[in-house]
């Protein structure tokens, strides 16, 4: 199993390096700016958090989309299929890095958030909390949709593209439905609308992940 994990690390290594860069670069830049202009600390780290979390969505889509289809595209999956590893072992090794990357991304960003907010006066409600929940669920959706596409397709690029585009298309679809039903912030409680939308994304993520995984486990071909 350790060899499979090592292989998976090597296959995903470029994406992990890219992920580390886009995770840290905004914060390092913010730190540099803060050292030069201390008054801008809040703005700088707000910006770095925004960029870091936004880029993390792309990293999760890359990890999901490249996980299976990437090896099909370069046909190394055919070599792997000749070896006596079970599909469950493949699956386990492929699913190690995405949660790990997501955990690191969130630990770093939430630490930065806590650090920045530590000096601020406490408030009843932190709008950042809602925003973080929203970004976390969107990240999950990006990963799950691209994972599902990766299970079905033979092109890593298409899988990643589908993973990145689909959540936006669904978001626009929901927006259109709201517009068509004449639902707006005036007629609908903002919190309820947000919960419904996030609920839809959560269900979509779950369905995509489970269906993709089931297909991969049942599929005979590499």
């Amino acid at each position: 199993m350790s060899w499979l994990i090592w292989k998976e690390y090597r296959v995903q290594r470029l994406i992990l390096i890219f992920g580390a860069i886009v995770l840290l670069a905004p914060h390092v830049t913010a730190l540099a700016l803060t050292l030069r202009w201390p008054d801008l600390q809040r703005n700088c780290f707000d910006g770095s958090l925004y960029f870091s979390l936004m880029f993390s969505q792309v990293v999760l889509a890359l990890l999901g989309g490249n996980a299976i289809a990437g090896e099909r595209a370069d046909r190394s999956a055919e070599f792997l299929a000749c070896l006596p590893f079970s599909r469950r072992q493949h699956l386990a090794s492929k699913l190690i890095f995405s949660p790990l990357a997501a955990t690191i991304i969130w630990v770093v960003n939430l630490s930065v958030l806590c650090l920045v907010r530590s000096g601020a006066p406490s408030a009843q409600h932190h709008p950042e909390t809602d925003w973080c929940v929203c970004v976390a669920i969107m990240g999950l959706t990006f990963f799950c949709v691209s994972w599902c596409a990766s299970c079905l397709l033979e092109s890593g690029v298409f899988s990643i593209a589908i993973g990145l585009v689909t959540p936006w298309v669904i978001g626009m679809g929901i927006g259109l439905v709201f517009w068509w039903l004449d639902l707006s912030a005036d007629t609908l409680d903002d919190g309820i609308a947000g919960s419904w939308i996030l609920g839809i994304y959560l269900v979509l993520s779950l369905v995509c992940f489970l269906s993709g995984t089931a297909y991969y486990l049942r599929r005979v071909e590499p």
Binding site: K7, R10, S76, A77, E78, C82, L83, P84, F85, S86
Partner: peptide, 17 residues
Amino acid sequence: VQLKQRVGYVPESHHIY
């Protein structure tokens, strides 16, 4: 898996990493 443990397969085209 049990089958591949006991069989040695050389495919027509070689796609080793």
